[in-house]
Design a protein around this nucleic acid. Structure first.
Lengths: 337, 337
DNA sequence: TATGCATATGTAACCGGTTACATAAAGGAG
DNA sequence: CTCCTTTATGTAACCGGTTACATATGCATA
């Protein structure tokens, strides 16, 4: 069943049927009604793939994230969903699991799909392959929007948060609480937010004349397991830190996992400030101090930006950046007794 | 740039290029190398849409869930992702937000997309429109797999958990802990798991000769807000319950939100058992007793089932059901002092 | 009455792949 | 040497839409 079949039924040409379906061009109202009736009767749904091929646009938006199981990213996607649906876009989802090869593989697939646009949280800020592909996309007229993670030396548009300033404030809160031995579990050293948060950490210590100690700066990967191990190592140092800054929500969880196992209480035995909230902990009033932002909104903004680029076809990326607001919410875990 | 351009470059026909790309039919090795070289040089990526149109299959799998921001569903999707990627399927994601109209809208879109298959957690077990569409899909050779929520009187395949038995065990734990005044905040009364969990609740009370009290059975909608309000109402009853069974993870969170605000401690002032774990609470050893299962695995199984149906083309749904194992994990919140 | 524009519809090429069918050369069997 | 099979490649129709262009009619304006 295709538009030609419908056309035959009604006794018109396929062009007319197409016009009716798309509400384009001129169609006599009488004809229109007949066509609509035939479509209704045949329970006909036009083939979106044929349409895509013809108009060279899939009405699909690719979304590439590093970990949907992370509530931050699932919230981001949730924020994108509504807007996309309103504008009749499909979301094609890819989860890289923080793996670069998989990201490349997906970008390759995406290229074949002739997506209308792409929103991506790249694994690394340094990945030439990814960057080249993204620039290629833009050159072909497929707009790209970065979300949460920027790429070094790129002028791609995106929606971010001011990581360095936010981390600075978080660390500052620890300092104000009297800490001098403050450790950080970083993100991967190839991730822009990871690096910027580290930058904020260093700046805060430096501004407050606190000496940087190499052994207090330990590398994480934004995942629970590694953060757990790093915490263990930190606390087994001859001169352990009294406070830990966790570079993202999973890192916080890893820290908490270890502390919990050791029956160490945050805000008493040890202090912690984490980047990004953890919703269920807020609900039970678990006193974890975090740097918060509205992830859903960030997703929404990213989708809005993409759709804007989609409608103003000429608008290539020009390093346009939107920063979503953040807030340091102190709940007591920054203190020690 | 298309395969004909490549063909021209090499001096062969487009059919040969197609054969090289798909590794189908006969191609002399020498020719193959030349074609591959030309593809490489031109940085050519074949148009997947044209391919889809031609072979009448999009290599995309639609996934319709009621709420990605819920960690249960984001885990489900996470479990699907890997398998789908291995098999070169794209995931087209739809989030209905528990709204039936939106589900219908998506199913309509999905129909036009000529998806290879569909995995859905339907909003309601009673929705004729959805069921009809799903059956239509199967009749057209587009296999459907239900995940987590079954549909009444349907013989669609799916991956579920034994909701009634699991809820029974959860409530039984409360009874064993000495409770007689046990309330339940149900799911929507149009959701199969919601109803089955209620069934399990009733069966447990009945088996232990505990009278059902209407005012202890309050209707929720699997969302935090309503559960919060219901909890408030329950605890303001003249004769309030001493224990609450929460029908899903969001419901548990709603209950906890109210209890926390009122400074009521679970496992002491009031007892609670919830359906579905909440990962971050486990990490901090928050003593919430829950009925647990591996959501990621459930997603994986659903995708595996779909892919199986995809390869055995003849296999229409026949009410095949996979049940993932569950476990009642008691952490103390089922007790009262 | 002639001219021009808005309305209405059809024809056919095109989007970029796949593949049935045709053709032909090479190698092996008898 | 003939016949059959395997290998190799090309031709062209097809998937199901969209749309530029052609054609035709009605009506208003000059």
């Amino acid at each position: 069943m295709n538009i030609r079949d419908i056309a035959k039924k009604v006794g018109v040409s396929s062009a007319t049927v197409s016009r009716v379906i798309n509400q384009s061009g001129y169609v006599k109202d009488e004809t229109k009604q007949k066509v609509l009736a035939a479509i209704e009767e045949a329970d006909f749904v036009p083939n979106a793939i044929a349409r895509s091929l013809s108009i060279r646009d899939s009405s699909s938006i690719g979304v590439i994230v590093p970990d949907i199981a992370n509530e931050f990213f699932s919230s981001i996607i949730s924020g994108m969903g509504e807007l996309a649906a309103n504008k009749q876009y499909n979301i094609v989802l890819f989860d890289t699991g923080e793996m670069q090869e998989r990201e490349h593989q997906y970008l390759q697939m995406a290229e074949g799909q002739r997506l209308s646009g792409l929103i991506i949280t790249p694994v690394s800020e340094l990945d030439r392959v990814t960057l080249d592909k993204l620039i290629q996309f833009e050159n072909k007229g497929i707009p790209v929007v970065l979300v949460d993670r920027n790429i070094k030396n790129s002028s791609l548009d995106g929606v971010f948060v001011e990581n360095d300033a936010a981390a600075y404030k978080g660390v500052e809160a620890l300092i104000h609480a009297g800490h001098r031995k403050i450790a950080i579990i970083t993100g991967p050293n190839t991730s822009m937010p990871g690096k910027d948060r580290l930058k904020g950490y260093k700046a805060a210590l430096s501004d407050y004349k606190i000496e940087l100690k190499e052994e207090y700066i330990v590398s994480g990967d934004f995942k629970i397991i590694k953060a757990y191990e790093r915490t263990k190592e930190l606390l087994q140092l001859p001169d352990p830190p009294t406070a830990i800054f966790a570079s993202n929500n999973q890192t916080s969880l890893g820290v908490l996992k270890y502390l919990t196992e050791q029956r160490l209480k945050i805000g008493r035995d040890i202090s912690i400030v984490g980047f990004d909230q953890i919703e269920s902990l807020k609900i039970i009033d678990y006193r974890l101090s975090t740097i918060e932002r509205d992830a859903k909104r960030q997703g929404y903004e990213a989708m809005a930006m993409l759709i804007d680029k989609l409608s103003n076809k000429e608008s290539k990326s020009s390093g346009r950046k939107i920063f979503v607001p953040y807030q340091v919410v102190l709940r007591g875990s920054e203190l020690t007794k």
